[in-house]
Write a protein that binds this DNA or RNA. Structure first.
Lengths: 187, 187
DNA sequence: ATTACTTTTAGTACCAAGTCTTAATATTTA
DNA sequence: TAAATATTAAGACTTGGTACTAAAAGTAAT
């Protein structure tokens, strides 16, 4: 039995949301109505045509890509950097960084900020973390801004560069870590 | 002065890669040649037409979106889990996880896998990492599969749950860490 | 300069997936 | 049964192309 108009439109909306790459012709077959009906439905529901739908999805992706390029190797924004000495980065905790239940930032984001800052501060084409000793001092909530400060502290007996990173929210310590970094060239 | 054919085609390729949402007509204006020339160029360079380009970008985005939903709270796929005892997860290192220069995985991804596994193994609505002592044993390359094994080892004198996580690529240790976890409820 | 070859432009027919408009049927409801 | 609502049909036009043919322009070689 054919559905009613409202029911069909409800399903139509769902279908297009779920599989946006579908033509009016295919939709017409699915709902056993004419192409024209589908087009009237789209008009009423304000759903744009296939090509526009594809385009908007593509634009989203494009923005994502651009964003990804900017972030690339560093988590958080580096605001101060003196190679082989010190560096500072800021990181705003957003929805995607917190546990879906409570709004507390997942530890690995704080670690990622500190770790990538430790990598960045080292004057070497390829610095890698060998060991790290870290502690999470207090929970960080969504919306808070974390300031990470890194300082190069010399070398271990094995020749690894020691970088200390302390992170704060409003002067209050939230994370601290000591990173022992491997570098590919001696300076 | 108009450029040579090869030069124009080189620039054309770049332009399209940089701004894929551009029509032949616009390209023709930019390079001051006819539409047909642009089309010949695209043929020779095997560059598909605008709509196909948009479509492929959109499909990428679509896949990303689906993938992002699945990952959510845990980095890597948990393949074994016995609460408050042990857990195993696998994590495939892909292009987006490695340094753009060399293809070595960035440390924070290995940490993220281990840390989220440590969170997952704890039988608590909200477990948080208090401190961690970690070391990166060997570099992990793009394409390698990292197996992380977590085991709960008891409590510290301060009541933090100790979780040891060791990660391997083909039995070979690549990462190991001891996490001290805070839990909101006593069991 | 003439021939030969490459490069560029032009023009036609066609396609997909639409829009926009007008008009003719169904189907439902008061 | 008449009026209102819903559906289908048909035609003209749009964008951004493909495929193909042909002519013109530019460049190089003999």
């Amino acid at each position: 039995m054919k559905k009613t108009k409202t029911e069909r439109q409800r399903l139509l909306k769902e279908t297009i949301e779920y599989t946006p790459f579908i033509t009016d012709e295919e939709l017409a077959k699915i709902f056993e109505v004419s192409i024209q009906t589908i087009r009237l439905d789209r008009m009423e529901l304000q759903i744009p045509e296939l090509r526009e739908r594809i385009k908007s999805v593509a634009k989203l992706q494009w923005n994502e890509q651009v964003r990804a390029l900017a972030v690339e190797d560093i988590i958080g924004e580096v605001v101060d950097l003196e190679l082989d000495n010190r560096a500072i980065s800021i990181f705003d905790v957003q929805k995607e960084h917190v546990f879906s239940q409570k709004n507390i930032a997942r530890g690995h984001h704080l670690f990622a900020q500190a770790n990538s800052l430790a990598v960045a501060v080292i004057n070497d084409e390829l610095a890698l973390t060998a060991t790290a000793n870290i502690s999470f001092t207090r929970q960080v909530k969504e919306g808070e801004r974390v300031i990470a400060k890194a300082s190069v502290e010399g070398k271990t007996d094995k020749g690894l560069t020691i970088v200390k990173v302390d992170s704060f929210v409003h002067e209050e310590p939230v994370f601290s870590g000591e990173f022992h970094m491997f570098r590919s060239t001696d300076d």
